[in-house]
Amino acid sequence: MVKQKTGEPLTGEALLQKVKTLATLSKTQKAKACGYYTVTKGGVERVNLLQFLQALIEAEGIILDKPAAERGRDGRSARYRIAVQANGNLLIGTAYTQQMRLQPGDAFELVLGRKHLQLKQLDPID
């Protein structure tokens, strides 16, 4: 079922003021009164409580998540584990090479341990 939007919901200071005037209503009733609902093709009203609560949090000036630009590319961090690819190669990702300040052409010695593999960077050849 495709939902039809019923108008723009309140945000910011307007949302805060409206919620204060609706103090005796339930969360669901407040969300609906502030425009946080949709009407389905069948005419059923569905209240979007999560969007309403998120808008309230933002209107209060509370920031729960860092903006995407501050998190990095997609918010992931290095796990310090790699897996052997299907062709038998080991791929060391950009997160690791940047952290180690590696440049194209840097050489390593592989040291095999009982349960680990260690990379030792070789001195550059001048």
Rank of each mutant, 00 (worst) to 15 (best):
Q54G: 06
E8W: 00
D106W: 00
A59Y: 07
R73W: 04
L16S: 12
A23F: 13
V44F: 11
T11E: 00
T40Q: 08
E13K: 12
A69R: 08
L112F: 15
L119R: 09
Q99Y: 14
M1C: 10
K5P: 13
S26Y: 11
A83N: 15
T97N: 01
L50S: 05
E8Q: 10
L122W: 03
N87W: 03
Q99L: 12
A59L: 05
L122F: 03
L49D: 02
G12F: 00
I125K: 12
T11M: 00
A83Y: 11
G113L: 08
Q98T: 08
D74G: 10
K18T: 08
D126A: 13
Y96T: 06
L117M: 10
L112P: 09
Q51L: 05
G43N: 04
R79S: 05
A55C: 01
K115Y: 14
Q98E: 12
D74K: 12
A107Y: 09
R101H: 12
Q99K: 13
L10T: 00
G75S: 03
Q17W: 05
D123C: 11
A23V: 06
M1T: 14
P67H: 10
E58Y: 03
E13T: 11
L25Y: 12
K27G: 01
D74L: 07
Q98W: 00
A31S: 05
L112G: 14
L15V: 03
K41V: 12
V2I: 13
T21R: 14
R73D: 04
K18Q: 15
E60D: 09
Q51N: 13
L10M: 04
L119E: 06
L15H: 05
E58W: 01
L110S: 07
P104A: 05
L117G: 07
R79H: 08
M100F: 15
I63S: 08
A33F: 03
M100P: 03
E13N: 11
I63Q: 11
